[in-house]
Each structure stands twice: as C-alpha cells, then as structure tokens.
Computed example of a mutant assay.
Amino acid sequence: MIEENVSNEKNSKIKALIFLLIISICIYLTGCSNTSDSGNNQSNNLSDKNVKIHFINTGNSDAILIQDGKTFTLIDGGDNDDENLIVDYLNNQGVKDIKYLIATHSHADHLGGLDFVVKNFNIENVFVSNGSAETKSYRDFIYALANKDLSPSVPLENKKFYLEESYFEVLNTNGGNTTNEQSLVLIYTNGKDKVLFTGDAEEGTEKEILSKLGKVDILKVAHHGSRSSSSQNFLDKVNPEYAVILVGKGNSYGHPHKDTITRLINKGIEIHRSDFCKDVIFESTGKGVKTECKEWAYNNIQNKDLNNSKNILKHENDTNILYDSKIVYWTPNGSVYHITDKCNSLSNSKNILTGSIVDSGKPRVCKNCE
C-alpha cells in the first residue's frame, strides 16, 4: 500500500511537470487550441437577459463569479482557507460546470481555493497568467489540474471568449517585473455594459493597457485598494460608475489605502466594499447595471478634505447605531483610534490602519488627538 501511494504521488508530480511544460509551450505559441475564439458564430446583438456578477466575500482575497444564464466563469478563488466557502457558494448558485476558470496571477490570495474548485466541478477551460511560482498554493493548483487532465494556457489578447451572449477579452499577457504586474486584466461586455477586472495589476500594467481602455460601468479595484494601483490617469480613462473593493475587515495591510479611496471619492465613483456589504452582487441588463448592496458611507462625503469631513449615517447592520464617517487611524494592537496619522503616539508605529471609527473597533479616541 505504501509503495502504491508513493507511486501515485510520483505519477501526479510527473503529470504536473508535464502540464507546466505545456504552459510554457502555450506562452511561446501565444495560446493553445482551447484559447480559440469560442464565439465566432455568436451574435453581437445586445443581450436582453440579465447577467449576475458575484464579488464573493472571502476577506482580503479575490473570488468573482459571472453567471450568464447557465454558463459560469470564475475569476480567482480566494485564499487557501477559503476553499470550502468558495465551493459552497458555487453550489448554492447551482454551478455544476465552469466554462472558464481564470487565475489572474499566482498569489495565494487569488488561487488558493482553486484546487478545491477543480476537484469539485467540471472545468472546460483554464486560463493562467504569463508567469508561475514555486509555492505550495500554485503546486496544489497545478496538481489538481493534472489529475483531471486539464491543460492550463495563457489566453490570447483581444480574443472574445463567450459565455452565452456576453464575452470577455484579455488586455495583457506580456507579464511584468512583479507577479502583481503579471495579473491578467479582463474587460467583460454584456450588451452595452462593461466591467473591468484587474487582479492585482499595478500602475505599470495600467500604463501598458491605457490605450485599450474606455469608460466602464464597474471597476474591480486592483490589489484590494492598494495605493500602488488605480492611478489618476487610469481612473480618468475608465471613469467607472461603480468601484468594488474586495477587502478584509481590519486587515494587516491597511487595505484599502487612503490615497486610493481619496482618488475614487474625488471622482464621485460609487464605492462598494466586501468588508462593508459582504457579497457584492451586480445585475447587468445589457443596458445598465444595478446592485442592492449599499453604497459605502464615505461616498456621501462632499468635502474633499477627508480628515475634516463629517457625515452622520445609520450603520448598515444596526439602525440604532450612528457613527462619524471621517477617516481615523489605528494600529492592530492599539486600544484607541487617532484623528490624524501625525499623532505623536503613532510616530514609532510601522503598521497604521485606516478606516472609519466602526472599522477600527476601538472604543475611544487617543487623548493626544482630542
């Protein structure tokens, strides 16, 4: 029995290595056969039926499900500890087959749960970015694909990959100097509606694809709202009506960063956050998008000087709680929040988080800030 298990493990590793080789060949040839334009005989007429776009709440990680009729696309799969959450969510949506499984890049917070998805659902096409990683999360994903004889490939740029009547195009496969910059950026079209999915793409990738971009209805804000993404030139070009930030409450990275939030607010973009609204679900009619998710409170601030702006709102989950939505600062282990990040008490702090008083979870303001 031990010899049999060792043999099976060896065979799995051999398969995985073969498929890694296939990926390299696919990159060299700029795409495999399963990256062909599967919508050649599709109509370009506007879709009359609604498409659902699920931004799944997995904390400080990405998982997005597009549901066009009975055809599904999954973009990223959360982190390693999100495996059961993702599989349960897909089951609850009636998913049995996934036409396109897309790993935007090789970081664990984007593909950590995809090995479970591969094991539990029928997968037709698997797209990956131009790059790999020597990490357990990436190996688990590749092993899972190999064990089901699935061949991952880098999709061709500017090809239309159809779900039913809607489709997506990949804007970049050139890669970059970092794994984040290698993120596949996708523009999804349903009728007149357009959604931009950005993975963790940073300003370098934004500059590379800027000439290909136009106005979109929804922007999935890159890298959980990090200051390294969503540059001013980029936002001016795509000018979305809605921005979605997939972010974990009280995360140690301080996501989303104040600089990014400020740029979004100053452009009047309606912000929706998974740490505030949990699962953020949009419906695309082909002639406009809509959501029942409540707009994030800071969008009601009219004064662009965030530190001086106040707006009293009812908290989403408790209509009896009122809170001041000005931005405050705190540290993970601190017992108070701060009105300014210049407070002397924060001078030696390396990890300063930003958000509302409710976000901070701190019971009182710093005495030095009062």
Results as ranks from 00 to 15, higher is better:
15 K>Y: 06
17 L>G: 13
22 I>T: 13
24 S>P: 02
28 Y>S: 15
30 T>S: 14
34 N>G: 08
35 T>E: 09
36 S>H: 14
38 S>N: 15
39 G>D: 00
42 Q>I: 09
48 D>W: 03
53 I>S: 02
54 H>L: 14
56 I>A: 01
59 G>D: 07
62 D>S: 12
63 A>V: 02
64 I>V: 15
69 G>Y: 05
72 F>N: 13
78 G>M: 07
80 N>C: 08
83 E>H: 08
86 I>R: 00
88 D>N: 13
90 L>A: 07
93 Q>K: 09
95 V>D: 04
97 D>K: 15
100 Y>P: 11
100 Y>S: 11
107 H>V: 13
108 A>M: 14
110 H>F: 06
111 L>D: 03
113 G>V: 01
113 G>K: 05
113 G>Q: 02
118 V>P: 06
120 N>C: 03
120 N>A: 10
123 I>M: 00
126 V>L: 02
128 V>C: 03
129 S>M: 03
130 N>K: 14
138 Y>D: 11
141 F>Y: 04
146 A>N: 01
148 K>F: 06
149 D>S: 15
152 P>G: 08
154 V>H: 05
157 E>A: 07
157 E>K: 13
158 N>T: 15
162 Y>A: 12
163 L>R: 10
164 E>W: 05
164 E>P: 12
166 S>G: 14
170 V>R: 05
174 N>H: 09
178 T>V: 06
182 Q>Y: 04
184 L>D: 04
189 T>Y: 07
190 N>R: 05
192 K>S: 13
215 K>H: 12
216 V>K: 01
218 I>P: 02
219 L>F: 11
220 K>I: 02
229 S>T: 10
232 Q>Y: 01
232 Q>V: 08
235 L>Y: 09
241 E>M: 12
244 V>H: 01
245 I>N: 01
247 V>H: 03
247 V>E: 04
248 G>C: 05
250 G>A: 15
254 G>R: 00
255 H>A: 04
256 P>W: 01
257 H>S: 05
260 T>H: 07
268 G>S: 01
270 E>T: 13
272 H>A: 02
272 H>M: 03
272 H>F: 08
279 D>N: 04
282 F>L: 00
284 S>K: 00
289 V>L: 09
291 T>R: 07
307 N>G: 08
308 N>F: 07
310 K>G: 10
315 H>N: 11
317 N>L: 14
318 D>F: 06
321 I>M: 12
322 L>H: 11
323 Y>C: 06
324 D>H: 06
327 I>Y: 10
327 I>M: 09
328 V>E: 03
328 V>G: 04
331 T>Y: 15
332 P>E: 06
336 V>E: 10
341 D>I: 03
343 C>N: 09
350 K>Q: 09
353 L>C: 11
355 G>E: 00
356 S>Y: 00
357 I>G: 06
363 P>I: 12
365 V>A: 06
365 V>T: 12
367 K>Y: 08
367 K>R: 08
367 K>W: 10
370 E>G: 09
